[in-house]
Design a protein around this nucleic acid. Sequence first.
DNA 1: TGCTTCTGTTGAAGCGCTTCAATCATTGTG
DNA 2: CACAATGATTGAAGCGCTTCAACAGAAGCA
Lengths: 338, 338
Amino acid sequence: MRKPTMDDVARRAGVSRALVSMALRGSDRVSDASRAAVLAAAHELDYRPNLSARHLASKQTGTLGVLINDLHNPYFPAVADGIKAAADRTGYRLLLNSAFLDDGDERRALEAFVDHNVDGIVLTGPRVASGAIEAIGRMTPVVVVSRPMRSKVVDTINNDDRLGATLATGHLLELGHQHICHIDGGRGAGAAQRRAGYEATMRAAGLEPFVVTSAFTEASGAAAAAKALRADRPLTAIFAGNDLSALGALDIIDAAGLGVPDDVSLVGYDNTFIAALRHIGLTTVEQGRERLGELAVEALIERIDGRRSEARHEVIEPTLVVRRTTAPPKQSSRRSVG
Amino acid sequence: MRKPTMDDVARRAGVSRALVSMALRGSDRVSDASRAAVLAAAHELDYRPNLSARHLASKQTGTLGVLINDLHNPYFPAVADGIKAAADRTGYRLLLNSAFLDDGDERRALEAFVDHNVDGIVLTGPRVASGAIEAIGRMTPVVVVSRPMRSKVVDTINNDDRLGATLATGHLLELGHQHICHIDGGRGAGAAQRRAGYEATMRAAGLEPFVVTSAFTEASGAAAAAKALRADRPLTAIFAGNDLSALGALDIIDAAGLGVPDDVSLVGYDNTFIAALRHIGLTTVEQGRERLGELAVEALIERIDGRRSEARHEVIEPTLVVRRTTAPPKQSSRRSVG
DNA sequence: TGCTTCTGTTGAAGCGCTTCAATCATTGTG
DNA sequence: CACAATGATTGAAGCGCTTCAACAGAAGCA
């Protein structure tokens, strides 16, 4: 049983194919009677338009390509939720893709989007060189989320990492901590800004920053924490570059026989669902990931509709989420461990 | 600057469009000279075939639809990895989609696959009624992963939940536990089989099963654990239906002032990355999720290529992953808590 | 009544590709 | 050397849809 085509609908409704096309797309040049007839016929036949044919004829797909960099990273689902919500509101379909393992994947995923002729592309936390992104941005509207980059051709949406770091550090300062170490994110997206926020806040409080270089992974967070504890400096609090590295630090602190937050306070970044697990209860910074995703889609559609052509770089305010890993330092806290 | 089309390539290579089409698809009726000329021309023009057009003409998309049920669930990435690997090997593209929040999403995602005319569909842990799945399965090859269902039209790939539960329970028995409670997964996928495996193993050891009903979430795991601890029965070990509910249980055990594994041993299921976090170190059961994904794609392609038409239901062997949440019971362990 | 103006509707062209019957060029065979 | 068989190439049809110029009929105006 062949799938019904637009001709079948036209025949059944007793009108021309052209009119069916217009009626289905809600053109206002169609009489109410015809429209009703077409809709009825389409419904009776359970007609589903052939997207490929539509795309081929119209040059539009009504589809947005979304690259979720690394499905394994618990940071992304919330961003995807925001993207989904905004796409639903505006009637766009989503074509998801993930880079999985290597960077070649990412490049191939981008090509796939181009091949599928998506109307626009959202890149979340892409690792690929910005040159490659801009090359695509010149052909198709592109917006980059969670990776600060200054570009004249693609839009970006980010949280204010510097402010987030300031909130985290400020929270620890307010609790009375003075010996705050920052486990940074190395060359990760936003890591530099977070470090800068931390350092500025410390200096403003008249304290000397204490940064241990790391990356946004659990293992590197653990290594960095070990290094920090071994260092010849007092330490009562750690602000980790993201939740994952905070988790690594948490384990090392435990292993050193210290309590969180009794001996050491700990703050993460991203507010992934792991931070929210009751067993963890990590104080952290929420970027406003859903909002990030929504803004991305909105920016994209502005471009698609031709309402804007210059690049826009949006920054949203993160918020602090206080849980159970932060507390005032112990009275006897001027101590060095190691 | 217009995108180059096949005609452009044909002109440049000095052959007909038909020949370009055949050369590009690797037909063996093309002479080496022509093929080389076509390939060179395509490369020089940076030609990318228009998928919509190709599909419209050929009725094939070379694309598999993959529904990842709930991007938030850490169970799925590994399955997706396997799917990805197998698809790469066989040259198929992937069209990801996720159900995000509600069940309507899931239905719409399926429709999107049909509209996009994917060649086959992989459903991981779908919640939608099996009738709806079979309806689609009659039009397009469908394979369902991580949801046991007997069907004459769609294939299924699952781990042996019953065996997995037997491994988990057996591990606890071997350690010397006798008072083992099972926090089950309610109506979740595979929950019934896991419960059955647990019960059978207990009975075989001459012990009375102790099941507390729950669901596959952290919160319900916590509630169930609280109930189990309150019960008027001794308890030295808990086998939770999945990692998430185990995490909930972990928190409650902690809160009750009991140690894991000193006072209570704990086993999960799924081996999500959370279980592997050093700070958690949960003993759990690995389903072989990547393999699950690979098998799914292989089954799908068998159908697409027309090599098979009857439904196949494959089951793979799970393995136990022992970490730090299980240990022999304390000598003085015949005790009831609460 | 004759003319213009709308409003709805249609036929036909065309999107970029695949496919297949038909054609042309070679080579092999008796 | 004629003819069949094989191999390489092409023209044309067609996939299911959109779009647009052209048209028919109803309504408005003088």
